[in-house]
Write a protein that binds this DNA or RNA. Sequence first.
RNA 1: GCAGGGGUGGUCGAGUGGUUAAUGGCACCGGGCUGUAAACCCGGCGGGUUCACACCCUACGUAGGUUCGAAUCCUACCCCCUGCA
Length: 393
Amino acid sequence: MSTTPISFQVVAQEGEARAGLLQTRRALVETPVFMPVGTAGTVKGTRFEALEAELDARIILGNTYHLWLRPGADVVRACGGLHRFIGWQRALLTDSGGFQVWSLGALRKLREEGVEFRSHVDGSARFMSPEVSMAVQAALGADISMAFDECAPGDATHEVARASMELTARWAARSRARFDELQRAGADAGRTPESHPSVNGQQALFGIVQGAAHADLRLESLARTVEIGFDGYAIGGLSVGEEKPVMYETIGRLAPAMPPDRPRYLMGVGTLEDLLAAVARGVDMFDCVLPTRNARNGQAFTTRGPLNIKNARWATDARPLDEDCACSVCRRHARAYLRHLYTAGEMLAGVLLTHHNLACFLDTMRRVRQAIRSGNFARFRREFLARYNSGVE
RNA sequence: GCAGGGGUGGUCGAGUGGUUAAUGGCACCGGGCUGUAAACCCGGCGGGUUCACACCCUACGUAGGUUCGAAUCCUACCCCCUGCA
């Protein structure tokens, strides 16, 4: 009987691409997997019933920084942890707030000890550190927690990237230490004593590799992170302004060097092409706001590429967003209607596009897994991209 | 009929002699969005030629007039609103 918080096994491999099974204490997750982002305790624009029943998402994200500011860790803990608070029984992963150190760059001050934020909600001063992040994540009780890292800009110089990577390494050690203390102290609000037999019911903790676009720093970061020891390893700091070939090259060098028996998580990526490129390089897990955010902004993703529902060319188009999509939105509604809803400012536009986009991403990953298992991933990827790049008619 | 107010680009509405093809808002058209400060942000928006710089044409109810110059001043006419008959 295992004593780890998660179990992971690769069940098929084609080149670097892997199909695996990730057992968390709450859900079995087939990889490669796309995890919808639910920053503030909601995957914006969708209901949990849809995520569960139709989309069959097994794991979604929450965000430590955002939930810490509002409603607050104490509120979530008082409500029995994030799962019970939001009404989601499947797996949850919480990002540590590290990304906000970068994305809220204008609102924070960085120190060795941690980060001074000015709350974007009410302007108040807040201090976040590895220890604070771990405490908040224990209160949230997600099945997978993330180490508190610093995400450098994509074009960071070697010197800047090294300093950032080393700070991340020190923060990783502090994250690990405090995380373990909190687990021992029973602070985990999402503990499941009667969890799946192959896992021990505790929270998992993933480490994050940084180093911007510098291969030597990336590999050093990986070595230092692995030395500390985590349940899974993430690639952070990509899609933050660097050129796309740089991102692919970084993933290509890094992912195959990551521990083969642990899940590899590429944070914040990406487009469908990005997902396929990263899977081909050995990545198992993804999350991205693109399908949900862009849905609310009028962009649908289809197997023939993106479709901007705002465009006048769809005004009387009776076809669904994607003629090859079996989702409930595509089965029921025409582009003309969706365009009307968006143009009229109706909230249903965002709701329906969100559903479709998530269906598109999750279904694509389902097909990716199937292709890897049957040894057809290379061909699948080639054909998928040819179709995707042909464009929407 | 009399008195007063008003007619501006798709629309609402600024502008009251000189960077005015004409501020803004809306509508419309297009683009962006990658561990969510995002149901958000940016751009275009009279017509024509040009890759572009640029140039030409048409426009502030209609027709005249004053002036170097008019959406802005004057005259007449048309139409709308309000009040009194």
